[in-house]
């Protein structure tokens, strides 16, 4: 994004998971494909992007958070970024709710909200009766999109476009159960206990009889994948990001 006089409509904030994690890279590509299909001009920061600092801050390391965040704000302000879309709820939350206190003010939207906008505006055309038509799927609310930022309906209304049979888990929306990755848990071993949190969540998801578990967060997806694999259900139950569900059904 060495600006060549043209200013992109939107900055796609890829995030660490989306950049480095094999599984999450697939989500990044799916979302980029959708953006191209909708003819959105977007930019990425590439190697000028750093971790937003979310895991450092939640672990308690405020110094590191401030270093990372202030550096990002420098870059974002230098490019005069106004609008950011990201596929990671943790990046979303930090950019949206925590950067303003440090001098970074942007319009931040999550890719689930953006997908809904594109569909509502008719900029994305989906196939009639796609891959998931009539099939049971369930949706896992990530804490950082759901309970923390109150986004429950946008992803569900996107899923409604797929004519799938959306079955809710008992703990959903405000009462959604965490996947176990937040608060920097992703980077550490669990504290001693009876079972892993992702196992608890996957048991609930499998209980719905869904063939696909849809999520909106790369960390949730890793956790849910691990849980499904631990239950030896990886052949029959897939874990998808919302954008992957859509990209499969583009016209």
């Amino acid at each position: 994004m060495t600006a060549e006089g043209t200013s992109p409509e939107i900055l796609f904030w890829v995030g660490c998971a989306g950049s480095f994690d094999d599984r999450a890279q697939r989500i990044t590509r799916a979302f980029a494909t959708i953006l191209q299909a909708a003819e959105i001009s977007f930019a990425i920061l590439g190697n000028e992007e750093s971790c937003t600092g979310d895991p450092a801050r939640r672990a308690g390391n405020e110094f590191l958070f401030q270093m990372s965040a202030l550096q990002n704000i420098e870059v974002l302000n230098r490019y005069e970024i106004k609008k950011i879309v990201t596929a990671c709820p943790h990046c979303f939350n930090t950019l949206k709710n925590e950067y303003p206190a440090l001098g970074g003010n942007y319009e931040v939207i999550h890719h689930t909200q953006f997908l809904q906008e594109l569909i509502d505006q008719g900029r994305l055309k989906l196939k009639e009766g796609g891959t998931f038509k009539g099939k049971k799927i369930t949706y896992h609310d990530s804490c950082y999109m759901g309970r923390i930022n109150g986004v429950y309906e946008a992803p569900r209304s996107v899923l409604a476009q797929l004519d799938a049979d959306l079955v809710e888990m008992k703990r959903s929306r405000k009462n959604g159960l965490c996947c176990g990755a937040g608060g920097a848990q992703m980077w550490k071993e669990d504290e001693p206990g009876d079972k892993r949190i992702n196992t608890e969540r996957v048991e609930e998801a499998l209980g719905t009889g869904a063939e696909a578990i849809v999520a909106n967060c790369p960390f949730c997806i890793t956790m849910l994948n691990d849980g499904v694999t631990a239950k030896e259900k990886q052949e029959s139950v897939m874990v998808y990001d919302l954008s992957e569900m859509i990209v499969n059904n583009l016209q």
């Binding site: 890829v14 660490c16 998971a17 989306g18 950049s19 480095f20 994690d21 890279q25 990044t28 590509r29 990425i44 920061l45 590439g46 190697n47 992007e49 750093s50 971790c51 600092g53 895991p55 450092a56 672990a59 390391n61 590191l64 270093m67 990372s68 550096q71 920097a184 980077w187 550490k188 071993e189």
Partner: peptide, 25 residues
């Protein structure tokens, strides 16, 4: 467990230390 994460954010600006760049995808 958190130290590698702290180190890699501090030194590489990434939550994981990876030998690839951010544009690889």
């Amino acid at each position: 467990d958190w130290l590698p994460m702290f180190n890699s954010i501090e030194n590489q600006g990434a939550a994981w230390a990876m030998n690839i760049d951010r544009e690889q995808w």
